[in-house]
Simulated assay, not measured.
Amino acid sequence: MGIRRKRPKKNTVALERIEILFREAQEEFGIHPELSRTYVERARRIAMRDRIRIPRELRRKYCRKCFAYLVPGINARVRIHRGKIIITCLECGNQWRHPVVRNYRK
Rank of each mutant, 00 (worst) to 15 (best):
K9M: 13
K9S: 13
K10W: 01
N11P: 00
N11H: 14
T12E: 15
T12H: 09
T12Q: 15
T12L: 14
V13A: 15
V13Q: 13
V13Y: 06
A14W: 08
L15M: 14
E16K: 13
E16L: 12
E16M: 07
E16Y: 08
R17P: 00
I18T: 11
I20H: 07
L21E: 11
F22N: 06
R23T: 12
R23L: 09
R23K: 13
R23W: 05
E24T: 03
A25C: 08
Q26S: 11
Q26V: 01
E27A: 10
E27D: 11
E27G: 02
E28W: 06
E28C: 01
G30V: 05
G30W: 02
G30T: 00
I31Q: 03
H32S: 13
H32C: 01
P33C: 11
P33S: 06
E34V: 01
E34K: 08
E34H: 04
L35M: 13
L35V: 12
L35F: 02
L35K: 14
L35Q: 13
L35R: 15
S36Q: 04
R37G: 07
T38N: 09
Y39N: 11
Y39R: 11
V40L: 03
E41H: 00
A43I: 03
I46C: 09
A47N: 13
M48Q: 14
R49D: 07
R49H: 08
R49A: 12
R51T: 10
I52H: 07
I54V: 14
I54Y: 10
P55W: 03
P55M: 05
P55T: 02
R56P: 01
R56F: 03
E57A: 03
E57D: 07
E57Y: 11
E57T: 07
E57R: 06
L58P: 04
R59C: 00
R59L: 11
R60V: 12
